[in-house]
Design a protein around this nucleic acid. Structure first.
Length: 424
DNA sequence: TCTGGGGTCCTAGGACCC
DNA sequence: TCTGGGGTCCTAGGACCC
């Protein structure tokens, strides 16, 4: 059996790097990209991190740190990041057929199937190509397991002398390295587990790898057990090259300002239902249950209310208008006047592939119906002409409830009207 | 109603990830 | 004033069955 070589390719400060590609003036400056509604920092350039700004903190808490440092703030532009991600992944696919796209900015590769055996120099080639073709800097970790590849990647990011590529395959040198890694920095060990581990004096990755297996099984479930074996160098988590269809789809946003009227909630909900339906169709799936939820802002000291209602559909479908209709009817049932709402959204459940759906008792069905043809045309037009070219009237026009995006850059790569202009 | 071991299915909730 | 939006997996416990 060939011994596995896992490689994690991770884009450095991905969203901030994307912003820089289209605005080189940001190079060398602290850049912070905000979450939806311009709430928290979700990506920071290394200059921003150096100021003490941490990913996940509300931006209003960072005011003091930013003062006088010429910090450049951007609202998140997922259309741009999604497109840049696709370009990076395309390049990686050119290096090996064994690839798992793990998130928008990360991919696991397996290289042991290749004829090439000098993995360190291969890693440097990958890194240079992604940089040259997309402008995005990446870091690369190489190891016998995914968990170790994650750690190797982290080391490459933190140590410039590695030139962005670090290899943890050598077993003899691993112990010394693992002794320096805090348990909370291990993939799969979050806040609660690291608190528990530290209570039992398990402080480093090395100590976790040596911990009694029965204790781990009992307290951290099989997942903790797998992590420990992976740290020892035995692969327990394999590459997931094909992604299963999602089990549930959720579409929801917080509002930019408090929403009080049923009408605004209806508009917002209808547009989220429409987004959910699009996600469903992009996976060639249909859903049979739709849930609707709404809630006030729990951070505020004002009357609180939240509720949830779910409805079974007469037959599994991916038709936007039908899903919108049922969602709005459900909203009627849980809406109460007199509250300031912060959030509304939908869940889709009972998801099965389109081709597995069959007509119900009354002969109603989605696959092969006129509504399916309509939806396909709808999606094609929006794909070609830009999202929201066609939309549903129930989503409204003015959209006062829209999320805040004060610092948004253009969709440089996906919209003809917003291409980058070079002025000489 | 009680007795008992063994099984399945479902749901809620908790942990984690980016 | 301002606090993201998606997901996954696992377990415990209850309901129910024989």
């Amino acid at each position: 059996m060939r011994s596995p070589v896992y490689v994690l390719v991770d884009c450095n400060n991905f969203y901030a790097s994307c912003e820089r590609v289209f605005n080189p003036e940001l190079n060398g400056k602290p850049v912070v990209v905000l979450s939806n509604n311009d709430g928290c920092a979700v990506a920071c350039s290394k200059e921003a991190k150096a100021l003490g700004i941490k990913v996940g903190t509300p931006i209003f808490e960072c005011k003091g740190m930013m003062e006088g440092h010429d910090v450049r703030i951007r609202s998140s532009n997922y259309t741009l990041y999604g497109d840049m991600s696709e370009r990076v992944m395309q390049i990686l696919m050119g290096f090996t057929p064994e690839i798992e796209i793990y998130s928008i900015d990360e991919a696991f590769l397996r290289l042991d199937g290749l004829a090439h055996k000098d993995f360190l120099s291969y890693g440097k080639t990958i890194r240079a190509k992604v940089q040259r073709w997309t402008g995005i800097p990446v870091s690369i970790g190489i190891a016998p397991t995914k968990t170790l590849a994650k750690l190797a990647n982290r080391y490459a990011k933190k140590h410039p002398e590695t030139e962005g590529v670090f290899d943890l395959r050598e077993e003899d040198s691993r112990k010394e390295y693992l002794q320096k890694v805090d348990v909370s920095d291990i993939w799969g060990i979050g806040f609660q587990y690291s608190k528990l581990l530290k209570k039992y004096s398990i402080n480093t990755a090395w100590e976790l790898s040596q911990a009694p297996m029965t204790w781990l099984r009992k307290n951290l479930t099989v997942k903790g057990l797998r992590t420990a074996w992976e740290l020892k160098g035995f692969p327990c988590i394999s590459l997931e090259e094909t992604r299963e269809a999602k089990q549930g789809i959720c579409s929801s946003r917080s509002f930019g300002r408090p929403v009080k009227t049923l009408r605004d909630l209806q508009e917002a909900l209808s547009s989220y239902a429409s987004i959910g339906a699009e996600k469903l169709r992009s996976e060639h799936s249909v859903a049979s249950i739709i849930g609707v939820f709404l809630g006030t802002n729990p951070f505020k000291s004002e009357p609180q209310y939240s509720n949830y209602y779910s409805a079974n559909l007469a037959f599994p479908t991916a038709e936007s208008s039908l899903l919108i209709h049922v969602a709005l009817r459900s909203l009627q049932k849980i809406f109460r006047t007199g509250f300031s709402y912060k959030k509304v959204g939908i869940f889709l459940f009972g998801i099965v592939p389109e081709r597995d759906s069959s007509p119900n008792l009354f002969g109603q069905f989605y696959q092969g119906s006129k509504s399916q043809t309509l939806m396909e045309t709808f999606d094609q037009i929006n794909q070609r002409m830009g999202r929201d070219t066609l939309r549903f009237a129930s989503s409204g026009i003015s959209n006062e409830w829209q999320m805040r995006r004060e610092y948004l850059t253009d969709k440089f790569t996906t919209n003809w009207q917003e291409l980058l202009e070079i002025v000489s």
